[in-house]
Nucleic acid binder design. Structure first.
Length: 279
DNA sequence: TGGATAATAT
DNA sequence: CATATTATCC
């Protein structure tokens, strides 16, 4: 008797942070396309910016970014985007993004959980099949690793304090609950559910560069949110929810809805996806 | 599509 | 320099 997923979609949405609940993140919430559309310098431009390594963290406002790209956008050769090669920077898989990923896979079923389908189901703007495929690969490894080690008990959905699992993987993957069906492949009853395509929040691609901040488990960021509004952006006004769950600096603590801000260091741009309520 | 490998970041 | 994470190639 597995919980019927009759209302899985409902739960799914529940798990997602609503735009209203999201915290305003003053980041470079601009997608390459959008940037181009606005005729502004491409945030993804290979601009050799100086590495602004701000040693200090955003102690004042953890959830507010220190700066925007407004100033650094215009740099030498920024106006000229040789072939606006929309070369997106490395995609940063945030726990939430992973959550969506896992949910999509779970809802699709292992059988249909192919990169293409997952990507489509996720409806994340900016996400490419390659991104999903790459991550899916890692995810599979994680599941495999876990299956091999967590065989005791069919209870099976536990996965965290395993001494065999790689710490790095756990960190990210443990952030999102792994459906039980994942640990046991289609056995006899292998049927998936309907290919329902949810159209809740949409995720946009954000390309920003931040000096630090990335992990979720650490000090609890004070919810002193700074509210910033972007001058432009009419379609994707997104806000990020910076919820940090950190406890005593110990590991073994998993976060549930942690949203980590992607940060890029020195001239490196990071691509971040954030949920938006637009479709 | 999936897996291995390279590249890059931390 | 080692490890981790993502992109890319086949």
């Amino acid at each position: 008797m597995r919980e019927e997923d009759s209302n899985w979609f409902a739960k799914w949405e529940e798990e997602f942070p609503k735009p209203e609940e999201l915290m305003p993140l003053s980041q470079t919430l601009i997608t390459p396309d959008l940037a181009i559309a606005f005729d502004i310098p491409n945030p993804t431009s290979p601009n050799p910016q100086n590495k602004q390594q701000t040693p200090l963290v955003q102690s004042s406002q953890p959830n507010s970014s220190a700066e925007f790209e407004s100033g650094e956008l215009n740099g030498p050769g920024c106006g000229d985007e040789p072939a606006r090669t929309l070369k997106r920077p490395r995609l940063v898989w945030t726990p939430q993004l992973h959550k969506r990923f896992v949910d999509s896979v779970a809802h699709l079923g292992i059988k249909n959980a192919v990169p293409k389908t997952i990507m489509q189901l996720m409806s994340v703007d900016g996400l490419t099949r390659e991104n999903v495929a790459s991550h899916l690969q890692k995810y599979r490894l994680y599941l495999k690793r876990m299956q091999g080690l967590s065989n005791s008990g069919s209870g099976g959905s536990n996965a965290q304090s395993l001494s065999g699992a790689d710490p790095a993987m756990d960190n990210l993957f443990a952030s999102s609950p792994v459906p039980a069906h994942f640990l046991h492949p289609a056995r006899g009853n292998s049927d998936q559910f309907m290919p329902f395509v949810p159209h809740h929040h949409h995720m946009g691609v954000v390309v920003g560069h931040h000096p630090h901040v990335q992990q979720q488990y650490r000090q609890f960021g004070s919810p002193g949110n700074g509210h910033f509004e972007h001058p432009f952006l009419s379609r994707q006004q997104s806000q990020q929810q910076v919820q940090r769950m950190g406890t005593s600096g110990h590991n073994g603590n998993y976060v549930e809805d942690v949203d980590s801000a992607a940060t890029g260091a020195n001239g490196r741009k990071v691509l971040t996806l954030f949920p938006t309520g637009d479709d």
